[in-house]
């Protein structure tokens, strides 16, 4: 199927965001095709995370955001940061239990849930982390746990906010393989924010580069480091 023949899963039209008098995003138009990895890039402060939050429904905005879901109608989300008190004794098992079950974690039947959570973590190669404290995980390990939670139940659209930040080169390659597998084998559409043009070129079908407004929208091969550096200069 050619790129144009793929139906849209997400349509953003004329989206603008103003916060405390500052225009953060200006008339953003975006189409995310079903079955694609669509990257969002741009300099720091360009409004990428604001755009993600608007899509998530957590940001007041002008313009329209339309989801054209056909299957599970579910969004999965992996945040850029997860600020929490590291002294709270919460394991990876607890973390997933909180999200998957209504029965309070201190009363729930752990044995049955343990099998299910192990299965969920296996999808992102991190089943061995099940009893580790969330506060003690490395950046890469925590990313894999966050990705695992976002995949349960299976989402139709997965939003990733800078999935490669704080991960070493080996970890990045493993993460990329996982994203491609999710797209190709599980049919999950992915919209991800990334600063890494190399990563975008390797895995994305399409890239939209923004610096308050869109300055590039097309194939990753058409966007160069030079284009991005020019935008960094404008901002800096």
């Amino acid at each position: 199927m050619t790129e144009t023949a793929q139906p849209n899963l997400l349509e953003v039209k004329d989206l603008s965001v103003t916060l405390r008098g500052n225009r953060i995003l200006e008339r953003i138009n975006l189409e995310v095709k079903k079955g694609h990895i669509h990257a969002l890039t741009g300099p720091n402060g360009a409004g990428k995370t604001t755009l993600m939050r608007s899509i998530m429904g957590g940001m007041p905005h002008q313009g329209t955001i339309r989801f054209l879901f056909r299957e599970s109608c579910r969004l999965g989300y992996v945040p850029q940061f997860l600020e929490f008190d590291h002294s709270v004794p919460i394991t990876v098992f607890d973390f997933l239990f909180l999200m998957l079950k209504k029965v309070p974690v201190f009363l729930g039947r752990r044995r049955a849930m343990r099998e299910r959570i192990t299965q969920i973590l296996t999808a992102t190669n991190c089943a061995h982390l099940i009893d580790r404290s969330v506060g003690q995980l490395s950046g890469g390990e925590f990313r894999r746990v966050l990705l695992a939670q976002a995949l349960e139940p299976k989402p139709e659209l997965l939003l990733l906010d800078e999935p490669a930040s704080n991960i070493d080169e080996v970890g990045i390659r493993q993460f990329e393989e996982m994203l491609v597998k999710l797209r190709d084998e599980h049919g999950i559409t992915i919209l991800m924010v990334s600063h890494s043009l190399d990563m975008i070129t390797r895995v994305a079908n399409r890239v939209t580069a923004i610096n308050r407004s869109i300055f590039y929208d097309g194939s990753p091969d058409g966007l160069t480091h030079f284009d991005l550096q020019q935008q960094y200069k404008i901002l800096g």
């Binding site: 939050r53 998530m56 429904g57 957590g58 969004l75 999965g76 989300y77 945040p79 997860l82 600020e83 929490f84 919460i90 973390f95 909180l98 999200m99 976002a150 939003l159």
Partner: peptide, 11 residues
């Protein structure tokens, strides 16, 4: 969950 991360809770 909401104490952990509000955006994740919203998702």
């Amino acid at each position: 969950l909401a104490s952990f991360n509000k955006t994740l809770a919203k998702a």
